[in-house]
Amino acid sequence: MSIDLLVAGGVVLAYFGGVGLLCTELLGKNLRWDERIALAPFCAVAVTVLVIRVLRQLWGVWLPALPRWQVLVVMGVSAVLSVLIVVMRARRRMRKSLRARAQ
């Protein structure tokens, strides 16, 4: 297996993980970490199906017809942004709970 393929596969996995976790973050605050992990792949699949379908239906954009590197960059950026948002929200939540406990 080539390095190129491994990197691309890694980007896709990161995209699924990141987007899935972001969706579970937005779905509800009362989900525990284990429930989020269980739910994340389904959210990622749901978002992917809906986005690709809407892009094709409304604007006629067919993802595989775009240059590979463009799609990979978009997926990589969405993965990084999703993880950042999840981490920031988790940190804010933790700070809030610490403050509440201190009071």
Binding site: L5, A8, G9, V12, I52, R56, P64
Partner: peptide, 19 residues
């Protein structure tokens, strides 16, 4: 490069794009 209609094939498109 036919546009897939099934939700399963839509969900594997990111892997497909990765080559």
């Amino acid at each position: 490069n036919t546009p897939a209609s099934s939700a399963l094939y839509l969900s594997i498109i990111p892997w497909y794009v990765a080559g």
